[in-house]
Design a protein around this nucleic acid. Structure first.
Lengths: 117, 117
DNA sequence: TTATTATATTTCCAGTTACTGATATGATGA
DNA sequence: TCATCATATCAGTAACTGGAAATATAATAA
């Protein structure tokens, strides 16, 4: 093996972090939260995701440390956990802005279509 | 639906970009390339991946625009396509450094173990 | 040409993921 | 308490993903 155990552990965390942003539904949620905190219901409306699906992805994002949760009465509000999360999105925006359109048609894996019905 | 078609398209590209970094093997490759260009054989040695596996992931990373390829005689050298790719890794490093260890044990999805044999 | 080395591609499959629908929990108010 | 609203969790399932092994391509050299 070429990598130490601790390095592998760090890699695993980093992969999870990026994986949090690697799904259309989760990315849509994070993008919506870029403008400020929102309750679950508002996230559902803004993204068009089903309630259970949004809740699942929010749990995922929360477990991964990308968003934080705040109970407000019977509502739950979510917000980005750190400015660097928005920083990641901004860097990605910049990269994509400079890339030619067709350059990103990666066929090695698919980005699942959202069933936002 | 809540998002326009063009927005969805941009989201899809961004999701693919992050997906490129969301796998242990691909992330290992990108990390190794952080120090400079490497040939495929060197990448195989440095990461411990099998040749075909590394080649597949390199094709994936290339399709996604994260790395660039350069033919050198009968070798092929790969390097990060943009400083912002390293920027993404750096931001992730910072985020993870500040987070408590257990905070990143997301159970919603698994990061596949690498078969680096 | 033929042999050799370096890299890429294809095929198949086990394991994982995200979605829906139903149900459960939790919080507020009557 | 009970009813209602907001959110979370729990199966079940279709689809996708990454890995290995075998094969193909490409480049150099003899």
């Amino acid at each position: 093996m070429a990598l130490s155990a601790t390095t592998t552990q760090a890699l695993r965390h980093k992969a999870k972090l990026f994986n949090g942003l690697a799904d259309l539904s989760r990315l849509a949620i994070v993008e919506v939260l870029r403008d400020g905190p929102l309750r679950v219901g508002e996230i559902v409306t803004a993204t068009g995701l089903s309630q259970s699906n949004a809740s699942n992805h929010l749990a995922c994002l929360h477990d991964c440390g990308l968003v934080e949760r705040e109970q407000q009465g019977r509502y739950v509000s979510y917000h980005l956990s750190d400015d660097r999360v928005a920083g990641l999105l901004g860097l990605a925006d910049g990269l994509l802005a400079d890339a030619a359109e067709g350059f990103y048609d990666c066929t090695r894996y698919a980005v699942r279509e959202r069933n936002d019905a």
